[in-house]
């Protein structure tokens, strides 16, 4: 499975993505969790105390003269799988975590890091790793440029005007992509029976999950704990568990 979570800033992408990755790993899958938001948040939702899981500068080289491809690549001899083994942090439940958009070192890092990251994900054998990505908020093009691995984009939408409008913008952009991935909606902070329908209407997307408003998740944030560690039996975590089952049942995701 290769999914990436997108949506408006503050819609709850990281909390859902982190919980999703942990639950997927518990079901026995090898999971690589990728944070490509330059303002990192996924690490905390996974239960790591640090967000520092960047690729070191010396793992990335400028391409040699005469070589084709992107300007920067992993250093010669370093495969994507090795890069994960070496640089990805180990989160609870065996989830491996890489943070992208940052590079440890002096260079203006963004482009080097992006290209190395993209190569790592492309290199990984698909049957070996499930990938769960967390993307920057909003409809910025970067969101899509940074998740070429995703077979499915999971659009996290709150049933509120600005979130719905953002959701519609992202869905429209995704539909216009060359390699258009499937886009499914996950409704977050559901409070009323009509909320799911509201998202369906506004985005025109199939709704694959509905996560209820849950004070326990807010409390987890206040205490810097992963939702799954703070409140494993909470309604929100249960709902994300259903989402995992729903998606894992369809191997093409």
């Amino acid at each position: 499975m290769r999914v990436a979570f997108v949506g408006k800033g503050g819609a709850g992408k990281s909390a859902i993505a982190g919980t999703f990755a942990r639950l997927l790993a518990r079901s026995g899958r090898p999971v690589l969790a990728l944070d490509s938001d330059p303002m990192p948040g996924l690490a905390f939702s996974l239960g790591l105390r640090t967000s520092d899981a960047a690729i070191p500068e010396d793992a990335v080289e400028e391409r040699a003269q005469g070589e084709t491809g992107p300007r920067y690549r992993l250093r010669a001899g370093l495969s994507g799988a090795e890069a994960v083994d070496r640089y990805a942090r180990e989160a609870p439940d065996g989830v491996r975590f890489l943070q992208f958009g940052k590079l440890r070192g002096q260079e203006p890092a963004m482009m080097r890091s992006q290209m190395a990251f993209r190569q790592i994900v492309q290199d990984l054998p698909e049957d070996r790793w499930d990938v769960v990505g967390d993307l920057p908020g909003g409809p910025r093009q970067a969101a899509f440029g940074w998740a070429p691995y995703a077979r499915t984009l999971l659009l996290v939408v709150e049933p509120m005007t600005k979130s719905l409008l953002t959701g519609r913008r992202i869905a429209r952009l995704a539909a216009g992509m060359k390699s258009a991935p499937a886009v499914l909606a996950v409704v977050n902070r559901v409070r009323e029976p009509g909320d799911v329908e509201r998202v369906k209407q506004a985005t025109g997307l199939e709704v694959v999950g509905a996560v209820p408003w849950d004070e326990e998740l807010a409390e987890a944030e206040r205490r810097t704990l992963a939702p799954i560690d703070h409140a494993p039996a909470s309604p929100a975590v249960r709902a994300i568990e259903s989402l995992v089952h729903e998606l894992a049942g369809e191997s093409h995701r």
């Binding site: 910025r140 093009q141 970067a142 440029g145 913008r169 952009l173 216009g176």
Partner: peptide, 17 residues
Amino acid sequence: PDGVRLAVVTRIENPEP
């Protein structure tokens, strides 16, 4: 409303540059 003039100066960028 209230005499506020709104201008939008950014764009939603296209995917896949």
